[in-house]
Design a protein around this nucleic acid. Structure first.
Lengths: 196, 196, 196, 196
DNA sequence: TATGAATGAGCGTTCATTCAT
DNA sequence: CATGAATGAACGCTCATTCAT
């Protein structure tokens, strides 16, 4: 019986505890915010004893950093897969918009996972954390590239506007607890892209 | 001894302890966030003894509510004064945009005072707080009225887009610590209004 | 009924809670050492709720600093009272030795309160703490002055030897749990002073 | 396969894991004290996996006991080698004093390794630990023998005074961070021995 | 034997809130 | 009205010790 390549190792031990912790932290940070989420909360959701958390992460900030990293990776993956599955810049941009709109329900409940994290972490440190800014920079730069492919000289501004429209609509949708705000904004952005 | 009824007392104590508390809270909530701001912080900035805070506000949530109320009042005042000073819907909308852009420096440092408050308070309670939503609803409804005056049947959507553009740009400006993101977005919105 | 001058104030409140905390800390630091003494220990002995400790002392280090200060004050007082009650340098020095010898029982159990504190605190910080060194410097300088009054040009060395003899004997007495080691060493120092 | 019985194993592992642990513990106990030194610290300095420590030592107290034993052995060795290399009691005593003075730099930094250990361990247990007391008793008894050889009936007291002078000076040197205090005290003791 | 991982009790500290005067 | 003091629950974090392999 060969070891399936997806399983981490032959050792039956360690069923991705670190991953579970990061996933639990990401979920709780999104739902409760950084300050209201305790390490005990994270440990409980991940089903890991509290003391054991510190074997994987030296401080709470380290867990937060891991969550940011996980988000960054997810964004990168999503953008790469859009690049693979779509050829034209317009269809790529619209795919991103669709991706955003697909989360409208959860965003209306808890806000944009990236946006609210950026907002909160800004208050945690004096200096801005580069890794956090990357959460916004990555999709902006990607969108800019698409707009440039469309021959737009104002590609950077368009990318900023696109991202701002999403983050702003996410905030409004969350504040009003109305997913429609986000999904309808997405529709308008979609038409705007078509009209470019 | 002719103590005028409007003056607080014969004792030379500064007027408006409550006002000072609310102002201090508003400032600190903006700069440090709700969770990282302690009542002791607020009391110190307001120069009020800690124990005395509870004479004016039963709980921390009450102070936050007072801050929201103060913000609401300020928004109302601003919109009213725009109404007074400008006649045409377009110049009114552009006046609001100018108002937003004027804060770009402080917004880049601490985020939009209203937006980040909405974002944070969403995580503080299960149920959304109507007073918080009003912070967004008020300018949206006002803008909607202006767009309607311009004869736009999609006035509501335009108002949402306007506010989303501001809040989204504020978030990006804060995340990147770049006031230019906000002020340049304002320029584009300005031209967009002109072009309507 | 006049307010007795020794009572702190007319307010019946605050029966020297801070003093009780410092006294409890001094006792426990002596008996258990700095590291093994918890704030809960101190609070319990002082009969003060744990949370309340932080009203008086911001950190554990602050309590330790207060204990050092209390010790410093006690040393100063003792030396001053010896100065008052004795005229000749020799009888003063012998009074100090008597003071040391009087504590032989408790020193044999827990070590010299000053010496063991110096020893422990040395390991707590990179830099030496001046206030700690004063615990040793004060009696040394005082003794030096007495030896100088006796016309000894090597007054400083004699003072160091005197203090070293006490601290060394205290350590031996504590290690062997034998108060006799300290009290008999004191007798020999006494004769040594007489013979000068 | 002729694995000589004295060589640890065929695997090229470094010899003396246990020895390395004791050496690391001795060093860290001296520099950081017993309470501030963690098993992880010791394991890291000894370059031994944490989990493996417990194969050699059941508890932290066991490692401490091993350090005491190592110190005891070292003292015994030193005294024996002095006995070998010196014939007269006086030159032997002076050799010990020289031994003490040679460590003045490190003692000024971290205290006497034996003295501070005695001081700390006194606070760790209710009952005094005989093995700890031996750290002091051994050199005292050795010195007593030398003084007795010199025909001194007060040999025991002289030995106590000698050791007390060293330990006391070590404490002062450490507290003031001044190696000179110890080395100059050693000079005076040297002259005192000569004058006997 | 060897080792990375696990565990839980406890530590120093914070803070919203209450109380006595 | 005003205020310094009091309170306790909880938080982030540490660490000696144990466990599974």
């Amino acid at each position: 019986m060969t070891d399936s390549p997806s399983s981490p190792a032959a050792t039956a031990r360690r069923p991705g505890k670190r991953e579970r912790l990061v996933a639990a932290a990401a979920q709780l940070l999104h739902q409760q915010g950084t300050e209201r989420t305790t390490l005990a909360d994270i440990a409980k959701v991940a089903d890991v004893p509290v003391g054991n958390v510190y074997y994987y992460f030296k401080t709470k900030d380290d867990i937060i950093a891991a969550v940011i990293e996980a988000h960054t990776r997810q964004i990168t993956t999503t953008l790469a897969s859009i690049d693979t599955e779509h050829r034209s810049p317009k269809s790529r941009l619209k795919a991103l918009v669709r991706e955003f709109a697909a989360q409208s329900e959860i965003v209306a409940q808890y806000g944009c996972p990236f946006g609210s994290l950026c907002s909160e972490l800004d208050k945690r440190a004096e200096e801005p954390i580069p890794a956090v800014a990357a959460l916004m920079r990555l999709p902006i730069e990607w969108a800019e590239k698409q707009f440039r492919s469309l021959g737009r000289p104002d590609a950077h501004d368009l990318a900023l506007d696109l991202m701002a429209a999403y983050e702003g609509s996410a905030l409004l949708a969350n504040t009003m607890r109305d997913p429609g705000i986000l999904s309808e904004a997405a529709l308008r952005v979609d038409r705007w892209i078509d009209a470019l």
